[in-house]
Amino acid sequence: MKRITITDVAKLACVSKSTVSQYLNKRYDYMGETTKLRIENAISQLGYQPNIVARSLKQKRSSTIGVIVANILHSFSTKVIRAIEDTCNENDFHVIVCNADDDPVKEEKYIQMLLAKQIDGMAIFPTGGNLALYDSMVKMNYPVVFLDRMIEGVNIDAFLLDNENASNLAVKHLVDRGHTRIGVVTPSIERMVTPRVERLEGFKKALKVHGLPVTNEYIKSMGVDKLQSGLKEMFSLCEKPTALVASNDLTLFEVLKFVKENGLNIPEEIEVVGFDDIPFATVLEPSLSFLSQPAFEMGNKAAERLLEKIEKRDVLFESEIHRFQPTLFQGQLPKN
């Protein structure tokens, strides 16, 4: 079959090729409604499909961004991706999503692949293991933003939660409920991942503010696959904790698994505060308290900033740290 071209559309619509091009690029400022309608009908009648590759080469833009997620299993990450996709869709941009599994080697491969595909920009949940690569993108003024994490000394905008305040809200809630022996479980902080480090530091600071001791035996920071043994050690103590803060959704799963397997009652024997609004929170009896991140707002703002950088590629932007405030929900899910 003969490939339908812009020339065919122009001929059928009785307009010039440049007018059809303006229509395809949504430049309607000096175009009458009847002209637009003729072009629209011609495109429909002929079944014309624009050559995206050719248009990208001509415009020197792919209208595509990449999102590299540290771990796509997190419910927070999924919501942020959805918000980014919504914002990009409104601006006629496509999104390629890559999952790095918190592996710097895998992250580097994805960054190099996306650069090779000449996509217009990236939103990255950084592993922190590719400092030279991050710096090289900054030096070439390549549009990029960080999400959920920031890297010290790297001049890239970061969009993340006020993690210390989130931990403070969790501890205050438990203290107000009468707890004095409060524990925390978090994934390993060996790689100094921002939310893990900040939430743990915020937890310790909050204990001190409320006049409570920082008990190392009540703190378990390790690989998620090892948390069951860590919780077993914690609950083998003579003075067990009466409340726990689970610093993300994956650690919350492990806590609830431990609670079920050991026949513990919530909140009579152990009260739990989780991070991120997990859908099943409301079907538990009693339902859990948790700290909600404004994931959709964070994703929208990060996408808007990235698109601004793409649009103003020649402008040198000063990096900013954008902090968002958490909300404590006591046994209920927020309404989106």
Rank of each mutant, 00 (worst) to 15 (best):
P213T: 12
I6S: 05
T186D: 10
M192A: 15
V259S: 12
V185Y: 04
V197L: 08
N41G: 11
L24T: 01
P187C: 03
I52E: 11
S77P: 09
E269P: 15
S44C: 12
K257I: 05
V255W: 05
K301V: 14
S21H: 00
T180V: 13
V15K: 04
G183T: 09
E152I: 11
N248A: 02
T7D: 14
H94Q: 14
F93D: 03
V272Q: 02
I84W: 09
L46H: 02
C14A: 15
P294L: 01
D101E: 14
H210D: 14
G129C: 07
P334G: 06
E268S: 12
V272P: 06
L328A: 05
A246Y: 01
I81C: 04
K309T: 11
E107Y: 08
Y134C: 04
I84Y: 02
T194C: 06
P126L: 03
R199Y: 05
L57H: 07
V272Y: 00
I266T: 03
G129K: 03
S289N: 07
A116W: 08
R61E: 10
S75N: 10
N141Y: 09
C238S: 15
N51F: 10
T194R: 06
N262T: 11
A42M: 02
A302L: 10
T19R: 03
H322M: 12
D102F: 09
E90Q: 03
N216P: 15
Q22V: 05
M150E: 15
S229W: 12
V145G: 04
V185F: 05
Y48P: 06
D8A: 06
D249T: 00
E261F: 08
M137C: 12
D314M: 08
K260G: 10
N155D: 14
R38W: 06
I4M: 08
S16I: 10
E217A: 14
K208E: 14
A123Y: 04
P104C: 08
V214M: 08
Y23E: 00
D103G: 04
P267W: 04
K312G: 14
S287F: 01
Q330A: 13
S62N: 11
R27S: 09
Q330P: 06
V283W: 12
I278P: 07
C88T: 04
K260D: 14
T327R: 13
T242W: 00
E308L: 14
G211R: 02
L200H: 08
K260W: 11
L133F: 02
A100S: 15
P195F: 10
